[in-house]
């Protein structure tokens, strides 16, 4: 059976680092409709922060562009898509390796994708050089067992 979308939202923001907090807090507030635990919210916030930071630093290389965020709520799951129309990733596999970074000079640790993979249940990365990158991640929100 097709999963039924219960709610949906979209945000577009300028690729300014000051918007990173706005992005993660907005998605977390939207996700709260699924009644997640504090840990689940922390996982979502961290993952969104990583994806949006990647779009700003790598996608747009700190130039001006639009970062798009879409989120869909299902019965027990949230799907979050973060996309940019920036430079794209040449080798996705390499980019996803822990500690791999092309921005060591900016003190980037190369742990962004590793954190997204660990904190979310699914992560897919699509990218075309010169056109942009789209990251889609989903997280199951466990329902508490009812006691009455």
């Amino acid at each position: 059976m097709e999963k039924q979308v219960k709610n949906e939202m979209k945000i577009e923001l300028l690729s300014k680092s000051a918007n990173e907090a706005f992005a993660r807090i907005s998605v977390a507030a939207f996700a709260s409709q699924l009644d997640p635990t504090i840990e689940e919210i922390a996982d979502i916030k961290t993952s969104v922060s990583e994806a949006v930071t990647n779009a700003i630093i790598h996608g747009y290389n700190n130039t001006e562009g639009i970062v798009k965020i879409k989120a869909k709520l299902y019965e027990d799951e949230i799907e979050i898509e973060v996309s940019d129309t920036g430079s794209g990733i040449e080798n996705i596999e390499e980019a996803r390796e822990p500690l791999y970074t092309t921005k060591g000079n900016l003190e980037r640790s190369g742990m962004g994708f590793t954190i997204m993979e660990n904190f979310m249940d699914e992560l897919s990365v699509e990218s075309i050089v010169g056109l942009g990158t789209k990251v889609v991640m989903t997280k199951k929100i466990k329902k508490e067992g009812t006691t009455y």
Binding site: A42, R108, S109, M111, I115
Partner: peptide, 13 residues
Amino acid sequence: VFMDSAGIGLVIG
């Protein structure tokens, strides 16, 4: 309250 991977870079640096 919140930290992402930027914290790693900050500390190592």
